[in-house]
């Protein structure tokens, strides 16, 4: 696959059909320097990471070590300063914003510590909003069916008509995971998804995320919880800008 092929080409290669030997994510020597008001700080100083289909990786590290920065680079929110990033064999290190948006839509699902649900939309609308992003078009009924299926997967289909203020934290986070899964992403990126939840609810959420990898999805989980990290295939530590 050439680096210049259209995002649709990636879309077309679904999880099972692709060459299993090509990793979903292959990062080598990734660097990122963030510039604040005055000080420039090298947050990532050569990160290497490989993620395969159905694989799950936990990223541990103390606060401020650059875990969220790393996720924002993998999720194509931002571009690295150096190194190389291959997504499904495609070089996306310096992908322009227009194509990055298409790739975010086609390849990634995001879950955040704060759930980022839209207060004025119901649970099912919050899920289907990921399908209304200007990247392709699905008729209303299909959108709803997909969103309901994702809620079903999270075991909260009965809450479809509720708005976020009426949902518990765990329920809200599961709506957010349903939103991340509704486009059937190849890579699931979760940034401290249990940070705002109690242990028991947190375990439920981690279980929900893990179950996605059973369907061939790759998972990168940023967490402070060693128990949750232990449930992943691999555990890595981000220390001094390097992943070990």
């Amino acid at each position: 696959m050439s680096p210049t092929s259209a995002p649709q080409a990636i879309d077309a290669v679904g999880p099972g059909e692709a060459d299993q030997r090509v990793p979903l994510v292959r990062i080598t020597g990734l660097t990122k320097t963030l510039t604040g008001q005055e000080t420039a700080r090298t947050v990532l100083a050569g990160v290497d990471l490989t993620l395969h289909r159905g694989d799950s990786v936990a990223v541990l590290g103390r606060s401020g070590s650059g875990k969220s920065t790393l996720l924002s680079l993998i999720g194509l929110f931002d571009r690295p300063d150096g190194g190389e990033y291959l997504l499904d064999g495609q070089d996306v290190t310096r992908v322009p914003e227009r194509r990055a948006a298409a790739l975010r839509s086609a390849a990634f699902g995001f879950v955040f510590q704060r759930f980022f649900l839209l207060k004025h939309l119901t649970a099912v609308q919050n899920v289907s909003m990921a399908l209304v992003n200007g990247q392709g078009w699905l008729p209303r009924r299909k959108r709803r069916a997909k969103a309901m299926a994702a809620l079903e997967l999270m075991g909260i289909a009965h809450l479809a008509g509720h708005r976020p203020p009426r949902l518990s934290g765990g329920e809200q986070q599961r709506v957010a995971i349903a939103r991340a899964l509704v486009r059937e992403p190849r890579v699931l990126l979760a940034d401290e998804p249990t940070g705002a939840l109690d242990t028991e609810t947190g375990n439920l959420v981690i279980e929900a995320l893990r179950s996605a990898t059973d369907r061939g999805c790759g998972l990168i989980l940023v967490t402070h919880d060693h128990d949750h990290a232990a449930k992943m295939n691999r555990v890595t530590h981000l220390v001094d800008g390097v992943l070990t």
């Binding site: 948006a101 086609a106 980022f116 990247q135």
Partner: peptide, 16 residues
């Protein structure tokens, strides 16, 4: 701001 960031995260082009 949060809504726009979220919408961009799920792939909505910023021009749109």
């Amino acid at each position: 701001v949060e809504e726009f960031a979220l919408r961009r995260a799920v792939g909505t082009p910023r021009l749109l």
